[in-house]
Every structure is written in C-alpha cells, then in structure tokens.
Design a protein around this nucleic acid. Structure first.
Length: 262
DNA sequence: ATGGTTGAGGTTCAA
C-alpha cells in the first residue's frame, strides 16, 4: 500500500481553511498533519474538509495559540496527547491507522528570541520539551511510527540559508541541535526527508518579514518527517511544496510531503 | 537584546 502524508504549520486553520482545501484537493495526501491551528477543536471547519473526503479528524486545541490536528481519509484512532514539559499547551496529538501505523504530530515551542535559558524562559521550555521528547522516546519502545511536525529547529548546515549567520539564532543553535539529535537517537527515529533529499539547501519556512521571500530565499527547514527504523527501511520519497508559500495570504511554512510503500 | 510582518483577540503577546 502506498501511503502519502503531509505536515504543515498552517498559522490559523480558520483563516486558512481555503488553503487547506486547496492543498487537499490538488495534492490529495491520505493524511494531513496541521500545527498552529490557533483554534479550539470545536471551531475547526471540519465539514469543509469532510466534503473533500477527509472525514476523520483528531485534534487538540486552545484559544488563540498552538493547536494540532490530523485530517485523514482513512479511519484514525485518537490514542492521546502528551503534555511534554508540563506546559499545558496543545502541542501534540497521536493517532493510529487501521494498518497499525502510529502518527505523532508535534508543534515544538519556538523558544523566544534569546538563546539563553538564564534570561529567556521560553528557550528553557523549548529545551525541556525536547528533553521530555527524548525520555518519552527512550521509554516508549517505539515501532511502526511516523513523527511529523514543526519542530522549530533546522539541524543541518544546509537546512538554513547561512549556517554562520544563524549559529546564535534560536532554531539553529548547537544546544538546540544537540537536544533534537538526542531525541532522535532515543527513539530510533530516522530523518525521512533528508534520507530522500540528502544534498543541497532545503527549507520549509520563510519569514513574513522579508520584502520578497522567494528572491531573498532566507529559509530554514523547521518542519520534519521522521520514522522508526521499520518504516524508514521501506521505500519512500519526499518533497517540499514550496509553491504553497506563494499562495494568497499564505502561511509562513510550506507543507512537507512523504510517500511510503507500506 | 534591533527591525521587519502576521494572527488572535482584544488594546498585547507569540511567532
């Protein structure tokens, strides 16, 4: 069975419901994982998605901030959400498909502006969140699992427009990269996107603040698709739908796709 | 601890 999944930080699912519908109808992934829905679950426009065949949704939400959802053509069972680092935020949801594959959808804290937990609580919370992800993965004995989401870290030198200029910028600091790497190793997670696209600059986010995001191309790869070894061992392919960053009233993130031969 | 822009939900915070 071929299975296609996409992950997209939508930055308000209500404002951008038309863009979600555009993606679903033009690309037709089996599953779409959304982050930063910024909406209570009961205010997500599920009927619009159901009309396109996405009749299943599991989600966690809160008013104004955070929020994660999984839209699916296939039945998906809600298997719960973890409150990593005890923040009380809607940043994780997990679901299981009927073929036994588990999907974890994450929205890791952005971490504020200053990369020093002594003066910036948000940076400390981000590191704690990642440490908690590491311990959870280590204790979980994870298998047949896919982890996606806005992890708010661009780990590789070629995941950012300038490694040197971003070394002290939150999202690309060595301490964040080390924490992400620890979480990855603890869960036997494999970076599916970079296994499929090993060479060259690759981004999934471009700031709203650039005058011309496309021309400047000062992007970062903040959005990820990981899989446990059993799934990563089967055939897969990946792409970033960069064009979506140029759609009308866009999210600042582009969707990342992965297709698996399960 | 700049400036630039965006969204939600209220006159600011988070990203």
């Amino acid at each position: 069975m071929t299975f296609t999944l996409a992950t997209w930080n939508i930055n308000s699912v209500r404002l951008r419901a038309p863009l979600v519908c555009k993606l679903l109808s033009e690309e037709g992934p089996d599953v779409l994982c959304l982050q930063e829905c910024k909406s209570p679950v009961d205010k997500i426009p599920t009927e619009e998605f159901a009309a396109l065949g996405y009749t299943h949704m599991i989600a966690r939400g809160q008013k104004g901030y955070n929020g994660v959802a999984i839209l699916s053509k296939l039945p998906i069972e809600d298997i719960g959400a973890h409150d990593f680092a005890g923040l009380g935020h809607a940043r994780h949801i997990a679901g299981r498909l009927e073929n036994g594959v588990t999907i974890h959808n994450f929205y890791v804290p952005a971490g504020g502006d200053v990369a020093d937990r002594a003066v910036n609580d948000k940076f400390g919370q981000k590191l704690d969140y990642l440490t908690d992800m590491r311990d959870w993965a280590k204790d979980g004995g994870l298998s047949k699992s896919i982890l996606v989401g806005d992890l708010n870290i661009a780990p590789r030198e070629d995941d950012v427009w300038s490694h040197k200029q971003l070394l002290k910028v939150v999202s690309h600091t060595p301490i964040e990269v080390a924490h992400l790497s620890d979480a990855m190793e603890a869960g036997d997670w494999h970076d599916v996107t970079r296994a499929d696209i090993p060479e060259g600059q690759l981004y999934s986010w471009w700031s709203y603040r650039a005058k011309d995001w496309d021309a400047a191309d000062k992007g970062r790869r903040l959005d990820h698709v990981w899989a446990t070894g059993d799934i990563a061992a089967s055939a897969h392919s990946s792409r970033v739908l960069r064009a979506a960053r140029g759609w009308q009233q866009p999210s600042d993130h582009a969707p990342v796709f992965a297709t698996f031969d399960l």
